[in-house]
Design a protein around this nucleic acid. Structure first.
Lengths: 246, 246
DNA sequence: ATAATAGTGTCTCTAAGACATTATATT
DNA sequence: AATATAATGTCTTAGAGACACTATTAT
């Protein structure tokens, strides 16, 4: 199934001609190559808890086990495009905050063959998520890094997907410590208290309210709208919007 | 050159038997697959300047142009192992601090075919580097992100290797802002002034001496040895060693 | 003695934390 | 009016920056 081509090296005055010739005779099948997948940790916050969107595998290997949303990278699409496509096709999510995390390449991480996984994490406002048969939100405890279903039962994941989740948590915790990134988890208009809540949930610890507000306002990352909450039995908080750095 | 296998799905009581059967009929050649390389940004500090180890390509594409040290990932080795192997074979460096950076997967980043590059950066003490014909240290200005050779002439890199360098600089600057990571660039015994110099060189700005010392000592990351510099025309500084967090 | 840097001590300034006070909605 | 939280103001505390001063070596 594999052919070996003999490459004849020669020098010509015109380097481009030389290079073109080389490329014409280059056979990509000369080497064994791994397959590439993209796996995505989709995070959201619902009922003041961190959750992640998980699917159930319908095929071998790890059939019927829970796993991250993922799929193979097509030969002609970029990694980011693949992640967005898979997010749309398998996660039913479009235009979502997405960031590349890490590439997992242990030779035995998939029993079928050598598969390298480029992992991403996505942050989504929870109302955008449409759960269905095969697409469920599980609680993710950011401190213990444990996944539990609605009944509170712990869930183990297929492949090395738990490692991917662990690294995601480490990464976003690290980011949160020095820059606020929780806006993608909130609706377009949010109160300062909500931003603090997101940070507290992910970091797993209480934060100082006054200092948090001062720092957030000083960062100029949020902008007051002049609009206020309604329906709460206490003084309404002002709504803010995310002001992308100009 | 590609065969399509027909997979017959059937259920058996013994799931493992079922899965084994599936794997037996699984053909990895059913899909087109990209090739995977590892590319490494090797950084060091010499004569108070940041430098990077660069090679000259002997083959097409980008023949005779400068590029990062890199190579293909073997089908049975992990990404980290591949990086270490390539560092040894092509960079003549062993047991070096190495960290995965980012995975570049633009479909057109290599004119030969689809090649995805998992990039790493390495930090090395400069005396460990053996430069030779095809392996040279070039100055890397951490502010302008420009590469220059000994004569001060700017150098352009093959492929998207300049992007990889840019991201490396961004990453290590970000890391340095909140945690000292420069020890890998220094000899085993170093003075506090040397640590500060490393930070100043990479960040491209002067740092407060008193605050830097206080913070570094408070971090418990360094340990005094009781030994001192000699041969300097002024008060000798004490040597410290890196004390890995216990 | 001089030059040059190491290392320490102290004052100032900034920002985080703690706490008190006022403001404003629903019930 | 009672309640609960929003938002602001002030005091305290911790740490960074600035600066001065002493220590130590080679020349």
């Amino acid at each position: 199934m594999q052919f070996a081509y003999i490459l004849i090296a020669y020098k010509v005055i015109n380097m481009n001609q030389d290079e073109q010739n080389y490329l014409k005779h280059y056979n990509p099948n000369d080497f064994d190559r791994p397959s590439i997948t993209v796996d995505i940790v989709i995070l959201t916050i619902q009922n003041k808890k961190l959750k992640t969107l998980i699917t159930k595998r319908t095929e071998h290997p790890y059939k019927n086990q829970t796993s991250l949303i993922g799929g193979f990278v097509n030969i002609n699409e970029s990694l980011d495009n693949a992640a967005n496509r898979i997010l749309e096709q398998k996660g039913k999510l479009k235009n979502i905050y997405l960031e590349q995390l890490y590439t997992f390449g242990n030779p035995n991480r998939d029993p079928r063959m050598r598969i390298i996984s480029v992992s991403y994490y996505a942050l989504v406002e929870h109302t955008q998520i449409k759960t269905q048969n095969n697409l469920k939100l599980y609680d993710l405890n950011p401190t213990t890094q444990t996944l539990t279903n609605k009944k509170g039962n712990p869930k183990t994941l297929a492949f090395d997907h738990q490692d991917i989740i662990n690294m995601t948590l480490k990464r976003i915790k690290g980011k949160l410590e020095y820059v606020p990134i929780g806006f993608e988890l909130l609706p377009e208009r949010f109160t300062l208290r909500q931003v603090q809540e997101v940070h507290e949930i992910i970091l797993g610890k209480q934060l100082n309210k006054d200092a948090f507000r001062r720092k957030l306002l000083a960062s100029k990352l949020v902008e007051a709208t002049g609009e206020f909450e309604t329906g709460k039995g206490f003084r309404p908080a002002e709504y803010y919007v995310y002001a992308e750095k100009s």
